[in-house]
Amino acid sequence: MKTTLLVAGLSAFMLAAPVHATDVHTRTIASTCFACHGNNGVSNGAIPSIAGLDKAYFVKTMQDFKSGARPASIMKRHASGYTDAEFVAMGDYFASLKK
């Protein structure tokens, strides 16, 4: 019984498309930003919205937060937790969100 279940699980893994993991990762890390930047990146109040930002502007901004080139109250602490590849992937996603 146990073996059957595990084999069923195993074949399910094999059917999964390999690219999927990247999408799931991007979608999940991008969603962590919404805690501060608002539902789907549309903010209430002083924190800026990030929905619909131009991708190139977004990537440069995140790199500048991380390096310190753009001074920030809190974004250096958050931007430093992510890689350049993640900035690019998140950039595509945020650019696609409605302002």
Binding site: F34, G45, A46, R77
Partner: peptide
């Protein structure tokens, strides 16, 4: 680069309030 602020200020007060409103909507 994680860490805490040692000195409070007005800007963070405004962001604190905005954070609350935004996390509630999230």
């Amino acid at each position: 680069d994680g860490g805490a602020t040692a000195v409070p200020d007005e800007l963070n007060k405004a962001y604190n309030e905005s954070w609350a409103s935004n996390i509630w909507s999230d």
